[in-house]
Amino acid sequence: MSEVATGYNFAYLDEQSKRMIRRALLKAVAIPGFQVPFGGREMPLPHGWGTGGMQVTASVIGQQDTLKVIDQGADDTTNAVSIRRFFARTAGVATTEETAAADLIQTRHRIPETPLRNGQILIYQVPTPEPLRFIEPRDSETIKMHALREYGAMQVKLYEDVARFGHIATSYDYPVMVNRRYMMSPSPIPKFDNPKMDRMPALQLFGAGFEKRIYAVPPYTQVTSLDFDDHPFEVQSWEESCAICAAQDSFLDEVITDDAGSRMFVCSDTDYCRQRVAQQEANP
């Protein structure tokens, strides 16, 4: 356990900035899926390292909270380790790798496999918050498109997928409609995770540091993935099961195990995998 650093405000950000971010968060929660601009602050990590998520975490974390940080499902990647250490040092909070034991989970690219419960908060690091950006580069125009619910152009992206690949090939950052009103980027999670967002009991907060936007999905809110009537939304599936825990219901990563190119499939969610193995050992 690292030492709590002195000379910083609790969780690094000053109280004024936190209040400003909390106001943006309240607005975001009140208008599910709507991107709220906020006066982003610098964090002592480069952009692309999740400074948007970190600002959100810093603004909502309390002394009694336990924090979990994942990157691509794993707690032990450089990015996850540095963010966890950052809050352990600047806020002195407890940290965990166990999904069920966490009050706050900051994530990049995954939603944990263990279902989240009401009272937990999932904080996403978001690189590009605007789902309409690829079709419309002007902010003035995308703002109008959201305001007037003009989302036909978004369907163009799916059309192009089907025309080129015969199916909707978009597999990450798959656009969703929140509460039947706002189109939202779920951040680059695999579409496998999209159904977990729908009516999730936990609060979902999204922070985009570079573009200075915050958005949210309150607990139990409807989240649907775009599709066509004749090409319905589908998640990834695997023939294999996890080589470590034999899970058949989790998102699998293909890993190369030796120089000869041998491969195996394992859970991307390392905590989930470990929990299952522990359970199997406890009840052989």
Binding site: A153, Q155, A163, F228, D229, D230
Partner: peptide, 20 residues
Amino acid sequence: VSAGANIGERLMAVGERHYG
């Protein structure tokens, strides 16, 4: 985007959701 998407966009904008 493709010619097909260029023509299809307005249909999708007015609510058509059947790719075929």
